[in-house]
Nucleic acid binder design. Structure first.
Lengths: 189, 189
DNA sequence: CCGTAGTGGAACACTGATGTTCCATAATGG
DNA sequence: CCATTATGGAACATCAGTGTTCCACTACGG
């Protein structure tokens, strides 16, 4: 909000354009995360813009989807950065990554609903994180990196749906999430 | 397959009708589990029937969906029966339940894709199973039953997507699944 | 105060999915 | 072998979402 882009030389959004564009993207994330087949009119309404305007920014639905993937990818990357996955034990890093992803909220739901494959997320870093966990004994060596990744996403999904179903607090849900991921990946004894 | 219904008095499927109907349902599960928005023509094609025939059995799309929910619910129930969730420790029962659900295959994917809420599954039995686990020390009492249920589903999702992504063997995937559910729910020490 | 950028609304053509009707063709059972 | 039953295909009207065009309105900066 209120972020001010210094005008670039190329055809880059002036203040107002950027704001509208962002409003549309935010609305799209919110609406399409609940129903991936929602009509564009609904997105426009949620963004508080006319359908015409939406088409002005994203001529075709696929353009919007593409921009959405990009946006989600960006947020995912940022979350990955914040988690500093290369520090500490593998399990501790995984814990931080889960927390950061958890905080993404609707963006997360979008990733589940749409086909935005999770490969988007920095695959390699996660893999090396898991391998480090294997080595330092914080992650069971029997669990392949890809599996751990799959596991993390599914736990995030669990947490998200638990939140939606029970109306539990974000805080408690996060605790359960981290507690169970920890238990799932650590060596059995 | 080959199940023979004794002709009832009311308008009940004769042999052939039942078979066609079932073929359509099976195809619908397969097709719609991959793309919930797939056109009915695709379902008909997968079932090796004309679109006309499909409409003869399910006049509207919503009718097909309803029948699908019913079918999925039935299979879910059967799986629940087979798991005998009221026997053994809570964790052992949970383990069996996971395995039975895992074996449902496409039906499972359908449950994820469609909005067929998981409440369909025998909620109460699962809850008492978890409570039993709390009591017998095989499931961490800090984990609410609904959370455990959420967790189970998400692990099943993880397993399914892992299978799809990596082409790992069903057997190995199941092992990972059970291993991690076990670790996730058992008391920390 | 005027010009421009950004916008919204109405109207339109187009497309793909849907649901219906009608008819011709197997298959099935008595 | 004939009547019933189940089916597939073609043609059709309908509908919702999409993408486009055009015009009017507003805000804002020079």
């Amino acid at each position: 909000m209120g972020k001010c882009y210094s005008a670039a030389v190329t055809t880059v959004p002036t203040g107002s354009r950027a704001r509208t564009r962002q409003a549309i993207l935010d609305a799209a994330i919110e609406v399409l995360s609940r129903n991936p087949a929602a009509p564009l009119g609904d997105v426009a309404a949620a963004a508080d813009v006319g359908r015409t305007t939406l088409h002005r920014y994203f001529p075709e639905r696929s353009d919007l989807i593409a921009a959405l993937k990009e946006e989600a990818g960006r947020r995912l990357d940022q979350a990955g950065m914040r988690a500093r996955v290369e520090e500490d034990t593998g399990a501790a890093a995984l814990r931080r990554l889960c927390q950061e992803y958890f905080d993404l909220g609707d963006t997360l739901s979008l990733l589940f609903q749409e086909q935005v494959s999770f490969e988007a997320g920095c695959d390699d870093e996660v893999e090396s994180m898991v391998r480090r966990g294997h080595a330092d004994g914080s992650i069971d060596p029997e669990l392949p990196p890809v599996w751990v990744q799959s596991l993390m996403w599914s736990h995030l999904y669990a947490a998200w749906s638990y939140l939606a179903e029970t109306g539990a607090s974000r805080h408690d849900t996060l605790r359960l999430l981290l507690r169970c991921v920890e238990g799932a990946v650590r060596p059995l004894r």
